[in-house]
Design a protein around this nucleic acid. Sequence first.
DNA 1: GATTGTTTTCAGAAAGCATTGAAGGAGATC
DNA 2: GATCTCCTTCAATGCTTTCTGAAAACAATC
Lengths: 181, 181
Amino acid sequence: MEPMPIEQARSLFIRRWGEMGATWGISRTMAEIHALLYLATKPLCTDDIMDHLAVSRGSASMNLRELVNWGLIQRVHQRGDRKEYFEAETDVWQMFETITRERRRREVLPIMETLERCLEMLDDARATSDAPAPEEVATYRKRFRDIYEFCDVMNTLFNSVAKAGRRGIAPLGKLIAKFVR
Amino acid sequence: MEPMPIEQARSLFIRRWGEMGATWGISRTMAEIHALLYLATKPLCTDDIMDHLAVSRGSASMNLRELVNWGLIQRVHQRGDRKEYFEAETDVWQMFETITRERRRREVLPIMETLERCLEMLDDARATSDAPAPEEVATYRKRFRDIYEFCDVMNTLFNSVAKAGRRGIAPLGKLIAKFVR
DNA sequence: GATTGTTTTCAGAAAGCATTGAAGGAGATC
DNA sequence: GATCTCCTTCAATGCTTTCTGAAAACAATC
């Protein structure tokens, strides 16, 4: 029997979302589970996921936990059923907000802290007796500061965009398009 | 002998940049080479990189090529020297522009094409004799469209930000901030 | 066109990651 | 408290990516 077009669409999307995740440092299976839940019209349980994606119980469990940690999916209880069900956030702007917040915390902040420490070290460098070439220190300082400031600006920008987004994509799109011109 | 603070700062930054790359789907070594070149005050050759990072010639060669492909570093010739030297782009806004352009081409566009195809499939689904639940089709359509539009807005946004770049991202930031309020 | 210095390639080795499956745990139900 | 159902954990396994090192290719110089 031919799979229905709607099934084909789903499986195509899931496959692509998985590939995409892989190039983004997210495991293929985790991204696929996310895609499956994002499309689902009702909460799914672990067995649903195992069946659909042909993965082991262990893998499903681990990846689901990780997705819950990221805040991209939620556990939901179905009354009168002992199984646990899962449901994805479907508001893409909320998703964006969640992902950028987490990535900021896990990845951008550590970089910024490191840059601060590096800048402090440069100050120490100036204080040492055997002075390093002062213009080299100046160059390093600029390189460190440039990235630091970039992170800072991006933090602010992403915050605003996440907030703006929820009010509706279209107005924001128009606003930006006008700015570009 | 104690390493000088400026060396410490460099090695700390390189290490962190490498770890960061790893969580971003960029190989640790490639990110480290990039960091090394980003800080360097003059072009470096393959041997410099091998020495500093303790990697093999093969690995250095491969990763350097990849970085050139991404447009993040350039080959430069040193007059009267047969070796090839490399130099990183140091304008962070230019880096941002380069990276987002490439990622868009490699990753966002394919997703958008897939979403278009998925939407077409849903149209086909409506046409088939054994009709799938129409409200399920409607839900899928919305989910696909939401991501599509999100990508669209993000494309525009990143374009604008890259253009605005150093010249001042502030006006765009203000505009969006005003919109949020 | 041989020599020398440099880069690229690639098969095999190593490292890093994700997945499996079975054992164990935690709760609900009888 | 025994049983049943489902969830989690983790050591072992398999897969993918990355790195190595030597050989081949290339290019400049004599």
